[in-house]
Design a protein around this nucleic acid. Structure first.
Lengths: 153, 153
DNA sequence: CTCAGTGCAAAGGATTTGCATGCCG
DNA sequence: CGGCATGCAAATCCTTTGCACTGAG
């Protein structure tokens, strides 16, 4: 199954006359094993000797090819994840303190409710293609940190 | 009712030893009359002679005070809107072509479904505080533009 | 041999900060 | 008067681009 993924990625790249290079494979592998969207520094940290500019360029190519997806976040740092048709549809838990983003699978009932809302938007002239649902709050790690800080007071 | 709003804003600013200056009032008024989050240039265009840096600083202060909210967007340009407790709870229709964001009220059933999902996230250690739901697609304006372009082919 | 891919360094654009001045409380 | 607010300009941060070099086909 992992082989299928790489074959798919390679195919999508080939359509743009682009190759599935080691650098790009590295990116895909990192995103695959991550539990959520990764930042540039995080992706860079994975392998040494990689140039930032190449990473940015590769991400742009991969995004063009429909392999990765750029996730805008509040802290101004872009994050990237694999395109939804390569993984499962999911949503995000966004920590407002440390900015990390974790994947989260929503109940099917929620998806249905979103689809109905999309239909309503369509009636208003907007053509919905996808949706984005984030739960914003405090992640477990930051919460325990906060409680420790509170005790110290 | 609008007076209430300004009083509330002034109060929240005062809590931080900040004043409700004309510049800040201008920002709040612009956001109030807009049908969605505004960019810095849009906010700047409203009044002449305003310095960008002051606007950024004022937005930061207003965000601290819980009056405005920063909305991260895909095109790298930050957008701002009034805090939800000053307006009504709403969601966004994001145009992937021109980047504009319009407000959109979701059906109550959807909100309930989101709340249930939030409860599930909470069980997993995450503390949800709010949520964000965007429908991404093409706005009516861009769609008609696109159709015209298609005809020309 | 050709053209995509890479790394380095410089450029670009959005946002932030330093500093002197203006102004409200 | 003191401290917040403002404008201007310089600085910073993330991201993009230019250029020369390497490597795969």
């Amino acid at each position: 199954m992992s082989g299928d993924l790489h074959a798919t990625v390679a195919g999508r790249l080939r359509r743009l006359d682009q190759r599935y290079t080691p650098n790009r494979r590295e990116v895909v592998l990192s995103l695959l094993s991550a539990g959520g969207p990764l930042t540039i520094p995080e992706l860079l940290g994975a392998g040494p000797g990689r140039a930032q500019s190449s990473l940015y360029r590769n991400l742009a190519v991969l995004e063009d090819a429909g392999v990765v997806h750029r996730v805008p976040t509040a802290d101004g740092v872009a994050r990237y994840e694999l395109s939804e048709d390569l993984t499962d549809h999911h949503h995000h838990l966004v920590c407002r303190q440390c900015g990390t983003v974790e994947d989260f699978a929503a109940p099917a009932a929620l998806e249905r409710a979103v689809d109905r809302a999309a239909a309503a938007a369509e009636a208003a002239g907007f053509s919905p293609e996808s949706h984005r649902l984030d739960l914003v709050g405090v992640c477990a790690r930051c919460r325990s940190r906060g409680e420790r800080a509170k005790k110290r007071e």
